[in-house]
Amino acid sequence: MKVALIHEWLDGYAGSERVLEQMLLCWPEAELFVLCDFLPGEERHFLRGKVPRTSFIQRLPFARRMFRNYLQLMPLAVEQFDLRGYDLVVSSSHAVAKGVITGPGTRHVSYVHSPMRYAWDLQGQYLRQSGMERGVKGLYTRWLLHRLRNWDAVSAQRPDLLLANSSFIAARIRKAWRREAAVLHPPVDVAGFPMATGPRRHFAVASRQVPYKRLELVAEAFRRMPDLRLVIAGDGPSAPLVREAAAGAPNIEVLGRVSQPKLVELVQGARAFVFAAEEDFGIALVEAQAAGTPLVCFGRGGAADIVQADTGVLFAEQTPEAIIAAVRGFVAEEARFTPQACRANAERFSAEAFRARLMEHCA
């Protein structure tokens, strides 16, 4: 069987590249197509020597630094890939990859990380954060997003099967594209977070500190619970806000960015991992479960797929009060959340489980 894998672009080894890595393990002889490839040499290990085929965007002026500025050309670029003669096409899509054109004899399965958030329900937030709510530039951006939205809805009809990375994304697909998607959770490196059964003395939160993560809410909640210790790890644009929320609270320790071994140690020693963001899925939550650590997290987004009754507690609002109530509820029943139950839950999201289910869907 001749297989083609479609990926948007290569410029780093992050979440979508980890999915691509597993696809390459499923089909090591597949040919790989990407819009552009600017992946540093030290991060190319997961390609296993494979050289991707690129689009005309690779050769556009300043593409190495500014390829995202060519977003308006990406639908055209992805439609130019010649996929004649392939039996199976598998795309990994968070923007345009699912829009490749295939013939009637080719099966196309698209793994969707999300429809274009900035073109659909998060358009207003994107325009505000980019400072483009008004003016000529704002008008042009709205026109561009309108065109992208139309193309996105049309091209979403092309795959034979859509796979969503969570029930939350399946609902977004249903709303934006009027299509049903099967849920296939992304692969998580559960082996990298060994289960620990030793003493657990603190609560932990670790993530990139950006506005939607709402880490300042977690800090404010624990400021009001001086009897409970919180350790915060991570860095990013919202770091000053997080440090301000934690300032003067002797029970809160802010570490900043930490190494991977230190992160694993931090999570393994936590009574619970606290998370206030609405994520499409939430890989950090599964990593915490793999370490045997229960969860206290916001109950929307991918967390609803991850947390089980014996592995964590969900709260319904992104407020300090809701976090306090959830943490206090967790402490009252802490003994029933065992490391073994958490680890067993995490195993559902292993890389091996992902590959097996992906192959079933593509058969």
Score class of each variant (00 low, 15 high):
279 E>G: 00
285 L>Y: 00
276 A>F: 06
300 R>C: 04
281 F>K: 08
328 R>F: 03
285 L>K: 01
309 A>R: 15
300 R>A: 12
290 A>E: 05
297 C>F: 06
321 E>G: 13
313 V>R: 13
303 A>D: 14
293 T>N: 08
296 V>H: 11
310 D>L: 02
289 Q>P: 01
289 Q>W: 00
327 V>W: 05
325 A>S: 15
277 A>N: 07
274 V>F: 04
294 P>G: 13
283 I>F: 02
303 A>K: 14
299 G>Y: 09
312 G>C: 07
292 G>Q: 07
281 F>T: 11
305 D>S: 08
301 G>H: 10
318 Q>D: 12
318 Q>N: 11
275 F>Q: 05
318 Q>L: 06
310 D>T: 15
312 G>H: 07
309 A>F: 01
298 F>Q: 11
292 G>H: 07
312 G>E: 05
293 T>E: 06
276 A>S: 15
303 A>L: 11
306 I>C: 07
281 F>P: 09
274 V>K: 05
330 F>L: 13
327 V>K: 05
290 A>L: 09
317 E>C: 02
309 A>P: 03
292 G>V: 03
306 I>A: 04
284 A>T: 13
317 E>S: 05
287 E>K: 00
318 Q>A: 10
291 A>K: 09
284 A>Y: 01
315 F>K: 09
277 A>S: 14
288 A>P: 11
296 V>P: 09
323 I>W: 06
325 A>R: 15
327 V>I: 12
319 T>D: 13
293 T>W: 10
275 F>R: 01
285 L>F: 03
274 V>A: 03
300 R>H: 14
309 A>Y: 02
279 E>F: 00
308 Q>D: 12
305 D>A: 07
292 G>S: 08
278 E>W: 09
321 E>V: 05
317 E>Q: 13
280 D>V: 03
297 C>I: 11
326 A>G: 14
303 A>C: 13
291 A>W: 14
321 E>P: 00
294 P>A: 14
297 C>N: 10
305 D>H: 08
310 D>P: 01
309 A>N: 10
292 G>W: 02
311 T>K: 10
317 E>N: 01
325 A>G: 10
281 F>E: 06
279 E>H: 00
